[in-house]
């Protein structure tokens, strides 16, 4: 290492002579971090997304390598957020990659004290059975004056504010056709 390189390696030298007089950026960079590459630069692809927490709607860029989410950052193009994310938005990658996430169906039998495993396809069939039975048992066709009711009050649903518009649309459409009226979400709360 020549003397020149040695001196130029001093942060204080770089701070005084370079473009970073406050020493909070390039001047403070170590040799090791200079050699690193950001995950965002090597990502296979970037999906443009939106923060899933509050309704400010901050833009996100989701970086993917080997079909795994490797980083989520604020989208600097967004006129809403200008690249910023708050603590929650910044934790989005931890959210979607959390080891606590449930990835299999769990089933609790009546009167049971424990969870069991259940196949997704079986679960869907069982739920379909129960929906049809609840409709059959609680169906109201007309009121006491013979006016249409076409409904069941035996089924309830709560949720939607964290879901997509397209999902809410299908939920409302299907439940309405099922005659299930008692559909609610966080907007009531």
């Amino acid at each position: 290492m020549g003397l020149r390189t040695f001196i130029a390696g001093w942060p204080v030298y770089r701070q005084l002579t370079g473009t970073d007089p406050l020493g909070r950026g390039a001047a403070a960079q170590s040799g090791r971090s200079a050699g690193l590459t950001a995950r965002t630069e090597t990502a296979d692809r970037v999906a443009r997304s939106v923060c899933p927490y509050c309704a400010v709607g901050c833009g996100q860029r989701v970086y993917v390598s080997d079909d795994r989410v490797t980083q989520i950052e604020g989208d600097p193009d967004s006129p809403i957020s200008r690249g910023r994310l708050c603590p929650k938005g910044s934790a989005s990658k931890s959210l979607v990659t959390s080891p606590l996430r449930q990835t299999t169906v769990r089933y609790r039998r009546p009167y049971s004290t424990e969870w069991e495993d259940l196949d997704l396809d079986t679960a869907l069939d069982m739920i379909a059975d129960r929906v049809l039975a609840a409709r059959e048992q609680t169906w109201e066709d007309v009121d006491s004056d013979g006016r249409p009711l076409h409904r069941t009050l035996g089924i309830s649903s709560l949720g939607g504010a964290t879901l997509d518009n397209e999902e809410n649309y299908l939920i409302k459409k299907l439940f309405t056709a099922m005659g299930a009226l008692q559909i609610e979400n966080q907007a009531r709360i």
């Binding site: 927490y53 509050c54 309704a55 939607g160 559909i183 609610e184």
Partner: peptide
Amino acid sequence: LRGHASIQGSTDIPTLFNLLP
């Protein structure tokens, strides 16, 4: 200032008992 990512959407396309889209 609404509190969930699409709570406005779930009011416009309502998963609510008293409204249709």
